[in-house]
């Protein structure tokens, strides 16, 4: 595996020719293993109830926002809107609350989603193996869980209370999900929260460990990043576009077959260019508020993060095709999951 020093050298190398060389290599590897296929998905926020206090998150427990949890009828309406846009892979999210969004609730939501979508993934609070097994049997194939930062000190500084405070339980989540049979597991770090060199090194170690222990899982990684905004005093550093590009290119070279996600947190221009280098999965037509697709008017919405790429699914498809990419809606056909 790559050394900490080597990652540092690559990320701090300012020469344009080094960056171009890195990007060229990443692009070659991406085309070899993924062709020009880009998988599309959409997030669906089910609930913003949260019992954790993470300083960087709009949903955190102490934030005075309107708390909503979608009812059965409500998430059906949201799913119908997303389905009508052509999306077939859904990522369902909640705040971290065992109390408000227990396994039973998530199972019911997954069973509803199975009526509309082929790929169902969850980004919710970490759970135990038995709970993941129940969800797998209910049709959930993927789990997304970001460590945010692998630096224990920083982790403790930004995760002040709640379940998420438990670093080790979170770090071990991908293993438990894999043990339960999940097909797709997404890892990630929140860039800007801590030193990117160390975090990247630790993420690579984690991913390599997972690949070795659970080779049958399809892995993907995400690099969401915090951007400097007033009042975000928890930011550690600003990861600019240049560094983000290097991180994404380097990840592709080291992990040729791993999916790389890029969310609508990023500007359209950057997203479009990073597709040429290494990104293979993107969300489209996203709304990051609970009830944001069909239920609430925009002024009543409290998004988890602000969306920079507001293009609709149809627009994204158009852009992808014009750039000779093949937008992929289904990369899985749901079968009965036996535990």
């Amino acid at each position: 595996m790559i050394s900490l020093q080597k990652i540092n050298d690559i990320l701090s190398d300012q020469r344009p020719e080094s960056l171009e060389e890195l990007a060229q290599e990443a692009s070659f590897v991406t085309r070899q293993y993924f062709g020009r296929a880009i998988s599309l998905y959409a997030p669906l926020y089910l609930s913003n109830y949260c019992s954790s206090h993470c300083t960087y998150c709009g949903f955190h427990a102490l934030n005075k926002i309107k708390r909503i949890k979608l009812s059965d009828d409500q998430y059906h309406r949201e799913m119908q809107v997303i389905h009508a846009q052509g999306i077939r892979n859904i990522l369902m999210l909640t705040g971290e609350s065992y109390q408000h969004t227990p396994v039973k609730y998530l199972k019911e939501a997954a069973q509803a989603a199975a009526q509309y979508f082929q790929g169902i993934a969850l980004e919710v609070h970490p759970m135990r193996v038995e709970e993941y097994k129940e969800l797998f049997a209910a049709g959930v194939d993927g789990i997304t869980v970001y460590q945010e930062t692998y630096d224990r000190t920083r982790y403790a500084q930004v995760h002040l209370s709640g379940y998420k405070k438990d670093y080790d339980f979170r770090r071990d989540t991908p293993r438990r999900a894999a043990q339960a049979g999940m097909r797709h597991i997404a890892l990630g770090i929140l860039l800007g929260l801590s030193d990117p060199v160390t975090d990247l090194f630790e993420l690579y170690e984690h991913l390599a460990q997972m690949e070795k222990s659970y080779p049958g899982v399809e892995y993907s990684v995400s690099f969401p990043r915090l951007r400097p905004i007033k009042s975000q005093e928890f930011m550690h550093c600003d990861v600019d576009d240049m560094v983000l590009t290097k991180i994404i290119a380097l990840t592709r070279i080291l992990f040729p077959r791993v999916g790389i996600n890029l969310s609508t947190r990023e500007e359209p221009k950057l997203r479009d260019h990073l597709l040429e280098i290494a990104v293979t999965r993107m969300s489209a037509g996203s709304n990051t508020s609970v009830g944001g697709y069909a239920l609430l008017p925009e002024e009543a919405q409290d998004p988890q993060f602000d969306i920079k790429d507001e293009r609709s699914v149809a627009e994204i498809i158009h852009v992808l095709k014009s750039k000779n990419f093949d937008p992929v809606f289904t990369d899985w056909r749901r079968i009965e999951n036996n535990v």
């Binding site: 993924f34 062709g35 020009r36 296929a37 095709k321 000779n324 990419f325 093949d326």
Partner: peptide
């Protein structure tokens, strides 16, 4: 011929 990875149909 396999049909994956093409730019378009």
């Amino acid at each position: 011929l396999g049909t994956g990875k093409f730019k378009n149909k």
